[in-house]
């Protein structure tokens, strides 16, 4: 494990990505304490104050400090994306591994159905679900998780098919272990590596998707400093204060870039052909 982290940090993508994620983690954990100002403090004299010493990233339509809002907003954005990815990955990994373990016609039927579900664009599926469950961050997380699960199931299954024919799985079958034991104890731990890479890259999509839902008014609700919501609120004041819009936009993009970089780095670090 430490070996993997070392190899990850030796790849340039991994090093940059991990640094960015570390900064994000600090913002998520300590955001409210390190923020230079109160993110909710309204200051009408400071409306649309440009970038400067007073407000490092300017102030918004209510005179609230954009930098402080970004810092505090990290925890309404990034952990949500992580939770959604985790949930979707777990569900997808269990379904995919089970399908590979069952094999034959059942596997075929499950995979055909998953292919069919994947014909619904992820964002549309998430929109339909949030429309049903109601607006809010929690429901947006569930919706994204459901939208991710079929794709993760597909990835996991393709890995699990190879694992299924390994001796230790055959040994477990020969011992007469139950299906649940074989899926959870023998197969799942051994499909995790490629699944983790895929999941890391998906966190980037989850960040984007969650921000999109909030942007459309279906995820986080005002006055939350969620980044997608900040972009939505800043749009009508873009003439007076473009920085209010640009700052959260870049925060979303940087977060997505960070997870993409780490995913890419992990792929290099885990790829045996790139062994140095």
């Amino acid at each position: 494990m430490t070996d993997l982290v070392g190899r990850l940090l030796r790849t340039p993508q991994g090093a940059i990505g991990c640094t960015l994620i570390l900064l994000l983690a600090v913002a998520c954990v300590a955001g409210p304490w390190i923020a230079p100002k109160d993110p909710e403090a309204i200051d009408f004299l400071g409306r649309f104050r440009p970038i400067g010493a007073e407000n490092w990233l300017g102030a918004d339509q209510l005179g609230r400090d954009v930098f402080s809002r970004l810092l505090v907003g990290a925890r309404s954005t990034v952990p949500m994306a992580l939770a959604a990815t985790l949930l979707g990955t777990v569900v997808g990994a269990v379904v995919g591994t089970t399908s590979a373990h069952l094999g034959g016609r059942l596997d075929e039927a499950i995979m055909r159905t998953i292919d069919a579900v994947m014909a619904v664009p992820g964002l549309l599926l998430a929109l339909l679900l949030v429309g049903t469950l109601g607006n809010g961050s929690g429901n947006a997380v569930i919706a994204i998780a459901v939208a991710f699960a079929p794709g993760m199931a597909r990835v996991t299954r393709s890995v699990a098919l190879a694992v299924r024919n390994q001796e230790y799985v055959k040994a477990a079958v020969a011992r007469g272990e139950g299906g649940a034991w074989i899926v959870f104890r023998e197969m799942l731990p051994n499909v995790m590596a490629p699944v983790v890479i895929e999941a890391t890259i998906r966190v980037a999509f989850a960040v984007m998707l969650f921000a999109t839902l909030s942007f459309l008014g279906l995820g986080a609700q005002p006055p939350s400093p969620e980044w997608g919501l900040m972009v939505a609120e800043a749009r009508q004041y873009v003439h007076q204060a473009p920085w209010v819009l640009i700052a959260p936009s870049l925060a979303i993009a940087l977060t997505a870039i960070a997870f993409n970089l780490v995913g890419d780095g992990l792929r290099d670090a885990l790829n045996p052909r790139h062994e140095r």
Partner: peptide, 22 residues
Amino acid sequence: SFVGIAFPEFVTATLLALVFAD
């Protein structure tokens, strides 16, 4: 291309509108 992938549509759309329309 790495940067392009990281921009969700609503961000790209708002930024492009900011530059080319506004």
